[in-house]
Amino acid sequence: MTLQNRSRLFVFIFSFLVWLALTSVRDMEEVVAGLIVAALVTIVAGKFLITSEKSGHILRRIFSAIKYLIKFLWEMMKANFHVAFIVIHPYLPIKPGIVKIKTKLTKDSAITVLTNSITLTPGTLTVDLSPEKNEIYIHWIDVLSTDVEKNTKTIGGKFEKLLTEVFE
């Protein structure tokens, strides 16, 4: 089976399962409607989910993904308390600025997940990606340093290693 067809099959099964979870299945009509919707989704967007072969064992990648998810949820909780603290502080202790970090990730999906995680972690918000896809511009609410290497370590470093294991 080619890579595109495998991607289409996966999208079809996944969207059909989501349909079954969303509707309480009582009769055949809903199942048939679900099959039609899943087929439509597959025709439009089926080939985009899996675009390349991954190295590394599937179990190890799932384990890394779970580790990443736990780390991400913990960072997100810290981010919420951080912003809540800033907002209720009488003097608004902010020192905003836009800094630049480098990334070693090459896959589009990995970069998307990394930038989304950066937005949801304490004090940082992704503004743009450089055209060569190796630098990320980040709005930081409390700038600690303007050095690119140092910022790469503090902002992107905590996720980058785990994401390399999951996606590449």
């Binding site: 997100m76 981010a79 919420n80 951080h82 912003v83 809540a84 800033i86 907002v87 608004l92 902010i94 905003p96 836009i98 937005t119 949801l120 004090g123 918000l125 503004v127 709005h139 609410i141």
Partner: peptide, 16 residues
């Protein structure tokens, strides 16, 4: 918060 970028920080984090 003062400008659009700082306001987005509050909007995305707390609202998630």
């Amino acid at each position: 918060l003062p400008d659009v970028y700082n306001r987005l920080q509050a909007a995305t984090k707390c609202v998630t």
